[in-house]
């Protein structure tokens, strides 16, 4: 699609969407948001870029292949689940650590995994579809 407005706009928008997606991911535990929603928003940013420019350009911007991103996400979610084994709890029991008042948890790690899976899977599908057409 050759639209100057879209191309120019997408540069700003794609970045904003990515930042917004991380924001949604991080606030998800207490306010509307979370890994699933964040992943979808993040993917939208790259889809916008793919539509404004082309799929190849979106892939370049992504650097890693979306399939790998999804697989890494799955691995992170699994690792987050296995962390509970260290404390002797059943698989996927949430583990919390307060670093100088900053709450860190295996739950957040799990949600990051979900984010990457959704982000990678959606982009795998959309980019392949764009290229197939």
């Amino acid at each position: 699609m050759n639209s100057v407005i879209l191309t120019a706009g997408s540069r700003v928008l794609a970045g904003l969407l990515l930042i917004f997606s991380v924001y949604m991911l991080l606030r998800g535990h207490n306010l509307p948001g979370g890994g699933f929603i964040g992943g979808l928003i993040g993917a939208t940013g790259f889809i916008l870029h793919a539509i404004a420019a082309d799929a190849a350009s979106a892939r370049r911007a992504l650097r890693a292949s979306p399939q790998s991103i999804a697989a890494v996400g799955l691995g992170i979610a699994l690792a987050a689940g296995l962390l509970s084994a260290v404390a002797g709890d059943p698989f996927l029991t949430g583990q919390w650590l307060y670093l100088a008042g900053l709450p860190l948890s295996s739950v957040l790690l799990f949600d990051i995994g979900v984010y990457l899976v959704v982000f990678g899977a959606v982009l795998t599908l959309v980019l392949a579809l764009e290229e197939a057409v």
Partner: peptide, 12 residues
């Protein structure tokens, strides 16, 4: 679960 967003707490 130290979370206020029930939907997300259930999910993760």
């Amino acid at each position: 679960a130290h979370g206020r967003n029930i939907v997300n707490v259930i999910l993760v």
